[in-house]
Design a protein around this nucleic acid. Structure first.
Lengths: 290, 290
DNA sequence: GCTCGCTGATACCCGCCGGGTATCAGCGGC
DNA sequence: GCCGCTGATACCCGGCGGGTATCAGCGAGC
């Protein structure tokens, strides 16, 4: 078996789809092709890699060890490929005659670090040859994906919630955390609280945010959206832990109490490790000198 | 122009070849195909990305801004794809029934950190369920490439010579640097030297190592190979700066003198940022606890 | 100034392969 | 037992990736 070590992105796309669905039919539907060509493509990939990727158990499909590997590595490769295409398009738009100026996409967690972001954008706009900044508010934790697949050039990330692994980053700010409570709640009158105080309060379970699509277990409501959470807090149904800067978006019916023992939140500006764009360097310089 | 944002690895390979050669004919030859299909493939890629990648100037080809972007990003994507294939194959070999045990490839700079490497391998072999370690001695600075494209799972890297950007790493050791001189040279008698002492000594120019394929300018000889360098030093033709641990491979005709003001060399163990293999984690744990 | 030679682009043809439809083969469940 | 669901197989077709032959621009040289 001569094993050529070139894998086409199409094959990776197909394999990732099957590995995620664990079902050829659904994967084929998702890919917009029929099932038989998909089966054949996967077999071909297995033959070329000389490796079994899927255990076709009767009644479904499971990943082998090699399949797990290819799922992770393949996703990374697809991200890198998509990033190459996206960034090239944007670079092309920039150097087209009469085209747009340099343009940077900055991913931020929707609603987070409002004030910092404001200061950053103002300071950057004041620079003489500053690139245009497009702010891309993302869902909870997917700034990482945005950076990886080229939808964004830089992101404001919040340790320990976001992982900075694989990116370059600079620390911008450290802040404490607050408990966001219903205004009328007894705990809202306290000057400070500890994590223990707000965990296990009867009738006031902690809200649960999704991390990479899965919710941590617990009794609290599952939160998709900042506004939804704000409303649930205002209604006295839940409590949430947020960085200090969240005070910017609190409602009248909310109360904020500092948490003495919550881990500090460190805001970073992060970017893909190998990026060497001048515009990005300028943005980072501005950010760190705030 | 409907711009599908899927780029095939074949297209990336072709483009990178042209961008590196800046010549369709030579690139085609390197790729083992004829020139016309290559021209067509690049045009097709440009059309699909909606971007001009190459400025076909009379008498040759130049990269546009977008082309530069795609060259960098495309290389990264190709590395990631190759890494996915290689690591999948290796994982497959590991989970084949009766197949090889877990196996890790550790890239090291040939000849560097001999003693540390010895201790690391011994300590790791002493672990009960340790994976097998294959040591892959690399040329001067390409451990980074080895990690990126999946030829290695971990590497010993030496700051400030290697860049740790884009990898996870742990610090292992810090050492000073020494000047490696011909044994008979007057400077060899000194207890310590400074960088100024060995720069610009008449008849004894500093050896020049290639960094990513290019040699820094200077009068000294261009070095490809440790043995070659050792010989040139022994012959009294050059002098080199090395970490302390290089004493391990010095010849009788060599003399080593500490450099008081050379930057310290920090040895790290580094690995691809997203790796989550248990075997690798065990190796890193062993390394950091040395 | 004409030709030569070098560049990349075009024209055209062919064979392979990716995609489709129809169908088969194992097996769990009502 | 049959049905329904899974993925695999068989077969066909059209497009596209690859080849050869050739063209088109332009710089260098006698």
């Amino acid at each position: 078996m001569e094993t050529v070590d070139t894998v086409e992105t199409r094959e990776l796309r197909y394999f990732v789809a099957v590995a995620e669905e664990l079902h050829f039919g659904r994967a084929a539907e998702r890919l917009g092709i029929a099932q038989p060509p998909l089966s054949r493509a996967i077999q071909q990939l297995e033959r070329r890699l000389g490796v079994r990727l899927l255990a076709r158990d009767r009644r479904g499909v499971a990943l082998t060890g090699a399949g797990e590997t290819l799922l992770h590595e393949g996703r990374a490769a697809l991200d890198a490929t998509a990033a190459a295409a996206r960034r090239t398009r944007r670079a092309g738009a920039a150097d087209r005659p009469g085209g747009a100026r340099d343009r940077l996409v900055l991913a931020v967690k929707a609603g987070a670090s409002h004030e910092l972001l404001h200061k950053l954008l103002d300071a950057h706009a004041a620079e003489p040859a500053a690139a245009e900044i497009e702010v891309l508010p993302s869902g909870t934790c997917d700034q990482e994906a945005m950076l990886r697949d080229g939808r964004a050039d830089a992101a404001l990330m919040h340790a320990p919630f976001n992982s900075l692994v694989g990116f370059d980053s600079e620390e911008l700010m450290t802040e404490g955390q607050i408990a966001v409570l219903p205004a009328g709640h007894p705990l809202a009158a306290r000057r400070t609280l500890s994590m223990a105080d707000i965990e296990g309060v009867p009738g006031l379970p902690l809200a649960r945010w999704a991390r990479h699509g899965v919710y941590p277990p617990g009794p609290g409501p599952e939160i998709h959206d900042q506004t939804q959470l704000a409303q649930l807090i205002a209604l006295g149904r839940t409590v949430a832990v947020y960085p200090d800067s969240a005070r910017a978006w609190l409602w009248a019916e909310h109360a904020a109490v500092p948490l003495a023992d919550a881990p500090p939140v460190v805001t970073h500006i992060a970017w893909p490790a190998h990026n060497r764009s001048l515009a990005l360097a300028a943005l980072v310089r501005t950010a760190t000198s705030l």
